[in-house]
């Protein structure tokens, strides 16, 4: 949690305060960028860009929004732009959303997914779903905070998050079934 006084000093034009503020948020910025872009170098680039934008735009932050949602809005926007530029859009076939159950239930229940697998599954999600998941799990944001960050209605946030989790569990289950894991 960034101190409000630090934000105020930064907004007043105190460069040292502004740099100190950036140091406080750089990890959370990087973490979002890393999980959205699934690439260390891209994440560094996006984080630099986001921090520079925050540095020059700090005066536009208004207290009615939470500072951390404001920061996440900036970094997610940059990542989504970057993502759109760098790769063709990925979408998941609808059939993967179908509620599947009943087959070989016990065999998979006990499995534990490796974080590598999860990251790759996240990477396969459409950008908004991915962003919602990252904010929910890597920033521990509530529905409301996600809605504030992404400027989306609450119901849309929920719908994205629920669909994303359904997609992820389907993807991960296919993973296991594909015999990747011994």
């Amino acid at each position: 949690m960034v101190e409000p006084d630090l934000i105020k000093a930064a907004q007043a034009g105190d460069r040292d305060a502004l740099v100190a503020l950036l140091r406080e948020i750089e990890h959370q910025v990087y973490r979002t960028a890393y999980y959205l872009l699934n690439n260390e170098q891209d994440a560094m680039d996006a984080s630099q860009e986001a921090l520079i934008r925050i540095y020059t735009k700090i005066h536009t932050y208004e207290e009615k929004a939470q500072f951390r949602t404001w920061v996440q809005r900036i970094v997610t926007n940059i990542c989504i732009d970057k993502f759109r530029r760098s790769r063709p859009s990925v979408s998941i076939d609808e059939h993967e959303l179908v509620f599947r159950a009943g087959d070989d239930v016990e065999g998979e229940v006990m499995a534990v997914y490796a974080s590598e697998e999860i990251r790759e599954a996240i990477d396969k999600l459409p950008e908004h779903h991915r962003t919602v998941v990252v904010l929910r799990y890597l920033q521990d944001f509530s529905y409301n905070e996600i809605a504030e960050s992404l400027n989306l209605p609450l119901n849309t946030v929920k719908s994205y998050l629920f669909r994303a989790r359904q997609q992820l569990q389907a993807l991960l289950r296919d993973y296991q079934k594909g015999g990747v894991r011994g």
Binding site: V19, L22, R23, E26, H27, V29, Y30, R31, Y34, Y35, E40, A43, M44, S47, Q48, L51, I52, F99, A101, G102, V105, E108, V109, V112, Y113, S115, I118, R119, V133, R136, Y137, L138, R165, Q166, L168, Q169, L172, R173
Partner: peptide, 29 residues
């Protein structure tokens, strides 16, 4: 079964590593 899977997924997501940059991004800029 679905509840099990979703719960497990959610727990796994919550435990994803809190990655940090190799070096200070602020220093670099």
């Amino acid at each position: 079964a679905m509840y099990e899977r979703l719960t497990r997924l959610s727990n796994n997501l919550a435990q994803l590593p809190r990655v940090v940059p190799r070096f200070s991004i602020v220093d670099s800029i």
